[in-house]
Design a binder for these strands. Sequence first.
DNA 1: TAGTCACCTATACTTTGGTATAGGTGTGCC
DNA 2: GGCACACCTATACCAAAGTATAGGTGACTA
Lengths: 205, 205
Amino acid sequence: MPNILIADDHDLVRDTIAAYLETVDGFGIFTAPNLEAALKQMSGLDSIDLLILDYNMPGMNGLDGLVRAQKAYPTAKIALMSGVANRDVANKAMSCGAHGFIPKSLTAASLVNAIKFILSGERYFPFDFGTSPSTTPNDSTFTSLSNREMQTLEQLCIGISNKEIARNLDIQEVTVKLHVKNLLAKLGVANRTQAALLAKERHVF
Amino acid sequence: MPNILIADDHDLVRDTIAAYLETVDGFGIFTAPNLEAALKQMSGLDSIDLLILDYNMPGMNGLDGLVRAQKAYPTAKIALMSGVANRDVANKAMSCGAHGFIPKSLTAASLVNAIKFILSGERYFPFDFGTSPSTTPNDSTFTSLSNREMQTLEQLCIGISNKEIARNLDIQEVTVKLHVKNLLAKLGVANRTQAALLAKERHVF
DNA sequence: TAGTCACCTATACTTTGGTATAGGTGTGCC
DNA sequence: GGCACACCTATACCAAAGTATAGGTGACTA
């Protein structure tokens, strides 16, 4: 009997998914409210076959949590679950070595199929996920940014001044202005406020 | 046997909650993926005792969807469900006449209790919801804004310049600056970008 | 009536944001 | 070697953002 550990901070979501999976398929289901608890629980039970991590969850910090879990338990199958993440995140998760990406827009029946698929050793990725151009007009917009530009954008999302950003990144204020100017052009927006709003809307930071 | 209609755009969440409620309590459970579908389904089945609406859902448009549903079916009990809404939204929902507010941070068992509570004619509101000062430092921050300041903030959330805002509100640019300055002080933030981010985070606009 | 408050405008000023141009370094690639 | 590119810095300039002070209107209220 395969054991599955579901980690999600929304108790209601987690509990009901767990209850559903238990009833329908007779899986061994375990749950955790955050990444720390999940990893802790893994160390106790060494028979977890599949770990499902919610993308927006205390301790995850983007895909860092996925990587951490992989390093801690290299043999475990790990899937990412999210209701808001875009295609970019999903792609990155898969190239980080995730065994599956589970959007919450999935049907309950499809979830079971996906889980069985993953447990059989395959890697699950919903092929039609995030292809609608209306919801994600520019999935790859942010990938065109250089490292420094991404770091600068991250600071913009806190709403701080160029001077403070310069301090944080340990560079001159003029350089920050350069990065800002370039990233504005790449994102196709007019000012820092729009850049921050766009990044937040796309859940980049 | 009470009938419950659950409307949520996340198939996985909706299905599993539905499945859980069906198994545990033997309720009559119906589901819908958005507000339109929910209202349509209500018109067919006149025996729905409780309608659970997800706050972030196509057709909801904030609390408008709640009001629409109430007007369409004045006798039905209607509860709002959300994983992200803050205390303000919850309070407004209740004062709009909602029969309950269900945060997704609820336990599955608590959900059942809440539903039974509502079905018995009471109004359910999680008493400890959103009281943590860390998550919602100033729930009522935005209510202290004057009409014009709110309108200005709304424009800030598009990321446009003072000049454009002046055009849109048909006032002078200096006046816009005044409104911006005052609302920044009231919100306790340093600049327009932080104001926009805060408003977006709180789902004000 | 006087007081308060939202709202609008004006002048003047400092700071910050954003653009333009020019140049320097290091890395990797053909 | 030459080339592209990310990255950093410098000077300079203009536009936009934000602050400060002062004053005027209308509505509502004690």
